[in-house]
Amino acid sequence: MQKELFLGIVNTLSARYEYFQLRTDAACRISLSPLQKCMIVVRQLAYGGTADMFDEYLQVGESIGRERLKNFCQGVRETFRDTYMQKPTVADCQFLLDLHGRTHNFPGMLGSIDCMHWEWTNCPTAWRGQYTTGFKGTHPTIILEAIANQRLWIWHSYFGVVGSNNDLNVVQSSPLFNQQCKGYYLADGIYPSWPVVLNTIRCPTSRKMAYFTEKQEAARKDVERAFGSKMKVKESQTSSMKTLLDQATVLQASFIVRVYHTTMMNVFRHLLTCAKPKPIMHSNVI
């Protein structure tokens, strides 16, 4: 995590929530600083460590570590949700249409849609049946539905569906089509033949159909690359989510990973265009 991003989160949370401020207890002893409180949580997310990994260094037990993890995830979600997970505007939709028409030669394409399964190692035993499917291994999983563009911007994500469902069940419960731009999404063959979904042809029978299938599957790799950057580059963050016991905390921790992915894609895009990166987060967001 970049230094500017970390300090921006620390300053924002300490200005907004009393929990992350420097306080004194009943014995007039000074508690941990906002930097220490946020560092405990970030190291859990970054390295997949246990909640009591700072027990000897900062005298932080397991219960306090989990409590700070929950408060940190909740605070970041409430503070930066509108900034980093906002829905595309009219200008954004037009940008997506122009981008995919120019790069993939698919006029009217808004992005690629797909689902992936996040492994949940510490799923409660009573829930393992509904979170496990035979097609994705024997471990409980939680499904993430996402839409990504050619620049790996994930502008739609729907996380929390139990792992025993398939992509059809997820898209039927997803709020994707409540408010959408005029366009279509590239998908694999599991989705219905809707006007807003352009599926691939599984068994092309002509040269023209084979050419379309090749171009469609090549353009649909955008969402696969986005999933790869979330899982491989940030594998340590996702490994910490596997060890969480509370489903609500897993959902909030996944939001942290998505925010981190969005900020890193913004920085990477500015570096490619040789432009000065904009401030990742502002400390005066209240």
Rank of each mutant, 00 (worst) to 15 (best):
H156N: 01
M265A: 12
Y17E: 06
H100N: 03
T121R: 13
M1Q: 04
T238G: 06
Y211W: 12
R258K: 05
I64F: 15
K136E: 03
M281G: 06
L58V: 13
I280D: 02
S283Y: 01
P107K: 04
Q179W: 00
S206G: 11
T238W: 13
F6L: 07
A26G: 10
C28Q: 14
M53G: 09
T263P: 01
G61W: 15
T243I: 06
V197M: 11
H117W: 12
K37D: 08
V171T: 14
S112N: 08
Y17T: 04
M109S: 03
T121K: 13
S206W: 08
L69I: 02
R202T: 12
Y211A: 09
G61Q: 15
G189K: 09
H100G: 01
N105Q: 07
K182V: 12
Y260H: 07
F177P: 07
K87I: 04
F227Y: 05
G75D: 10
W120H: 03
L244T: 05
N122F: 00
T24G: 10
M53A: 14
C73H: 05
L69H: 08
E4N: 07
K70Q: 02
S239R: 09
R207M: 07
A253W: 01
L22M: 12
Y184S: 01
E235Q: 07
G75F: 11
E67R: 15
D246N: 13
I64H: 10
D92M: 11
K3T: 09
R23V: 14
F268K: 09
K208P: 02
V41C: 12
Q247Y: 09
V196Y: 14
K182P: 03
M241N: 11
A248M: 11
V42T: 10
F212M: 11
H117Y: 15
L110Q: 02
H261D: 01
E67D: 09
E217S: 10
G228L: 06
K215C: 04
M265E: 14
Y185Q: 02
P192V: 13
L245V: 00
T200N: 00
I142P: 08
Q44M: 09
K37T: 13
D92P: 04
D82G: 05
C93E: 13
K182Q: 14
L144N: 08
M264T: 07
G129T: 12
R258Y: 11
M264P: 10
C93I: 13
N166S: 10
M1C: 06
L186R: 00
D98N: 15
L32D: 08
L251P: 03
D82L: 14
F80R: 00
T132W: 09
R77E: 05
Y19F: 15
S63Y: 12
G189P: 08
C274T: 01
A226Y: 02
H261N: 06
T12S: 15
Q21A: 11
K70W: 08
K215W: 11
V76K: 03
G163D: 07
I113C: 04
